[in-house]
Design a protein around this nucleic acid. Structure first.
Lengths: 227, 227, 227, 227
DNA sequence: AATGAATGAGTGTTCATTCAT
DNA sequence: TATGAATGAACACTCATTCAT
């Protein structure tokens, strides 16, 4: 099965009472949603404010009612979609019961499910594409998303090394063994993938699993020995 | 080492007599150079034609003397920098003497040296960032650069499997074990890297080597056995 | 007089409430008016879009809010001012009571009053000057304005021949006996006339009458009978 | 026959010896020729200097070697093609033997042959189309071409009135009975004619003759009497 | 004299942003 | 609050004109 939309077009959970009120309260979110899609698809510069507004179902003027400028809209899109879930995730891993290898498996699987397969993955594409145009934002992203993620992975690897599961690794480089395949998958999903569908009929789950297994063999002291 | 400098900053054979003439012949190249840098740095839309001209040391009008439009300039930049060197590389690998593992090591090392470390890596960043805005060009890139590269890697892996060095792999997915870390490195070099230098003090050579070794352990039947 | 003011500077029925709104509805018309004047005066290529906007009292951007390009503005100007009034005119002539000579007199007089003396005459000047640059538009003009006009005149002449008033004429050429002096008058009004006022102190009414009378003598079997 | 083809598509009389030299001397003329064609076809503003040069077979730079600016080129084109031949023509008519009606016939026939049918007619089209953009030039044209022409026609008509051939005419208006059909023919030839060939399959000679005869009936005291 | 590469002011067009309604 | 008409700065692209060769 080829890879496809595991995502859904936005979850309108819990609509408030009145119609107007709901829309009013939902406006910023709808705009951010629309903006995320368009920024990911066309980049910041090539996305027109009017198009964002249109896709959100409001007028151009309304957009500027909620965001003082296109640039602020962009920043809001990024900030909104980084949402520090790392505390939560950290706890998840603190209480994780299982081997370090399972943690790596779980980490990559969850990364795909919660980030890669969702609209949130657009942020990764966006930041990597636009980093040079938004250095402050890139720094913010680095600090809020990448650093915590890196720390999480380092802890996992450290744990594996401590427990004797993994061989001695240079963590500064080893983290990228997990990061690179995930980032690559996400970038492809949003750039060349849609342009050359025949060349990327990848099943993301199988991709993740495949990368994961090869990686684990590479990390473990005795890949198939142990037990 | 049978291989040598295939690249080089353009062969300046026979510079024409007059000052004007020499400059004239160099113009397209200078413009493409300047354009590559700027497109990589700021993206297509955010790069101003005049800036490209200025960086090439000419006026705005001169740019349009050589390229009929900004879009054609972009396409020329991409085309110019893809230049199928794959035939050459394929031959290099056909005559390669050594294990499949050495081929993988050599492949990634050379990828970094000839692409990653050079301005050519900008094209990769560019295409991944702008693919959605230039679908035809992305298709061209896919066909001229990615497909040959993928084939080359598939052959290497197949050879390793045939020789019993590597375990049985699903090639459709295994190629990305080599591709992903290289693409990741290149993307970082051109996007987040320059924005958060303190977070990426990576030594590319060590990165490549690290990824390579972990990967090879993951690929080989007996990671620490043969060879 | 069965005929009355068929022309008029547009019916301003029901001006909308707000200032903005009223202006908005009037914009296209104001722009077309300004554009007609300038195109007639300077030609298409030499007329700057900004000048058209300025004359209409709006900014350059507003012009492109209503017309997607300068060329479309030009086409709109022409189309707007051709407005097939020929059905109406044909009816007028069907029910005309009087001699064929009177019809010719009436025809030329009315031509001047309704076209020549009004801004509509600018379109004639414009089309003749710019035909080569707008072949499709010229064809449209030919079909919508010239062909019907020619047909009308042919019918008049035919009627005169049928009634024995006019001598036997080759209609293909005779129509120009009426057309040429009118077109000439209109061209002069818009080109050399304003440049050499001392040479064209012509009273258009007297011009039309003079041409008309000489022409009628030339057309009639026996202009005024014996003597 | 004292008069003969005085005009011709450029008189290359006395080509100098060497090829280069001839071309050198011919350059301005070739440029004026090319410019006339293009100005007539596209108007002043829409004609590009480079195109003129290309049609004349020289480079853009050479054009500005002979004419300091595009505007001066235009003026030169007009001046060159007006060439006061009126003194000559006046003499022709002074010594003309025949009736005033014959003079009118001869005048219109010759007008067509020497102006209308030749490239010189382009100047008429040009001046009428561009008069508003070149008021000084229009004044010059008025003085050098139109006024003498008008005078010539006035004299012819006056002679007819003096001899009793023509009825008493208001000369200020009567001249246009001759001028209008000729100008009309020339304008059509250069504007709508080429755009709607199916609507103008006119035989110019028959047109002139037709207009001429109708006109003469209108002018003469006894249209169907004499002759 | 002739060339054509180079220039840069000028123009059409876009689009983020404002503001009267 | 929401609208969308209006704005004008910005940019791609053109082309008359210059000038080194």
């Amino acid at each position: 099965m080829p890879l496809s939309k595991l995502i859904g077009p936005g979850s309108p959970e819990e609509p408030p009472s009145g119609k107007r009120e709901r829309r009013k309260e939902a406006r910023p979110g709808e705009l951010l949603d629309a903006a995320l899609d368009l920024f990911v698809e066309k980049g910041f510069a090539a996305t027109r404010a009017e198009e964002v507004a249109a896709r959100a179902g409001v007028s151009k003027g309304t957009l500027f009612l909620y965001f003082p400028s296109k640039e602020e809209l962009f920043k809001a899109v990024v900030r909104e979609n980084i949402s520090g879930r790392f505390k939560e995730w950290n706890e998840e891993f603190e209480t994780f019961e299982g081997s370090a290898a399972d943690m790596v498996r779980y980490c990559m699987k969850v990364w795909w499910e919660r980030i890669g397969a969702t609209r949130a993955s657009g942020i990764t594409k966006l930041m990597i594409s636009e980093a040079r145009n938004f250095p402050e934002l890139a720094a913010f992203y680095q600090q809020e998303a990448i650093r915590p993620g890196t720390q999480l992975i380092r802890r996992i690897l450290q744990r594996g090394m401590d427990s004797g599961e993994f061989r001695q690794l240079d963590l500064d480089y080893a983290v990228f063994s997990i990061v690179a395949p995930m980032i690559f998958l996400i970038m492809m999903k949003h750039s060349l993938g849609p342009c050359a569908p025949q060349d990327y009929p990848l099943d993301p789950e199988r991709y993740v699993q495949s990368q994961c297994e090869t990686l684990l063999i590479g990390l473990c002291v005795r890949p198939d020995g142990g037990s």
